[in-house]
């Protein structure tokens, strides 16, 4: 009697362990694109959704976020040339709490500066994933919307929102700095309203985004999520 009881307990224990292991496995990413010997270099934890705070706390946080927009200084396309004037005394983006940061780790706004080739997209995905949430994406120029004048190129992607979530598009080829500022103000407004949950969207639809990315990035030599 006693023994069987013990056995039962043990079975339960192993089963639980098994389950836990399975769960842990689900939380891991396959990282199939990496060479076997390279897998150890990268973190393979699956990103998970982070819920916003509740109520006024989140509003306050969102206000702070909207007042302190740090741009990732990565000129992904020719539109990046229109970012420079923002720093000048004529446009003075600092007034709005906007600053450029040289590293994705510290930035919260990623500006896709125009057309993105496949090669660039790989870097865009990598940098986007390296940013810490909440993070926002500004699509700058027509190319990010529908490919713009390069829409039929063998190498230019047409819709950036198929690969990473975009919060605000600024149309034009090229949009002027004023339009960019307009986009920023729109973004701020949206952040304050709590509408910019792009990061959680990316995680919710993670597999879809990944499938899209992998469809065109053939030599996927990075982990599935670049922590």
């Amino acid at each position: 009697m006693k023994e069987s009881n013990m056995d039962g307990l043990q079975t339960t224990a192993t089963e639980t362990e098994q389950q836990l292991e399975d769960m842990a496995k689900e939380m891991r990413l396959a990282n199939d694109g990496l060479l076997e010997q390279d897998k150890g270099y990268f973190c393979d934890v699956r990103p998970h959704r982070v819920e916003p705070y509740k109520g006024i706390m989140e509003s306050f946080a969102n206000w702070a976020r909207s007042q302190s927009l740090w741009i990732l200084g990565f000129g992904t396309g020719c539109g990046a040339i229109e970012l420079r004037p923002l720093m000048t005394s004529r446009f003075d983006m600092y007034r709005y709490g906007i600053q450029a940061r040289p590293t994705p780790r510290q930035s919260c706004v990623f500006i896709i500066g125009g057309y993105a080739s496949v090669k660039t997209l790989k870097r865009i995905v990598r940098s986007y994933e390296q940013m810490q949430g909440p993070k926002f994406v500004l699509g700058l120029g027509s190319c990010t919307v529908n490919g713009g004048m390069y829409w039929d190129s063998y190498n230019t992607i047409n819709r950036i929102d198929q690969y990473i979530p975009v919060d605000v598009y600024i149309a034009g080829c090229m949009p002027r700095p004023e339009a960019l500022l307009g986009g920023f103000i729109k973004l701020k407004q949206m952040i304050r309203e709590g509408k910019c949950e792009g990061m959680n969207k990316y995680i919710d639809d993670f597999d879809w985004y990944k499938a899209n990315q992998k469809q065109i990035i053939h030599d996927w030599n990075m982990p599935d999520y670049n922590w």
Binding site: G147, D152, Y154, T156
Partner: peptide
């Protein structure tokens, strides 16, 4: 055919 390739590959809007 670059146009065809683009249409097949890049999710034309």
């Amino acid at each position: 055919d670059t146009k065809l390739y683009s249409e097949q590959t890049y999710f034309p809007r």
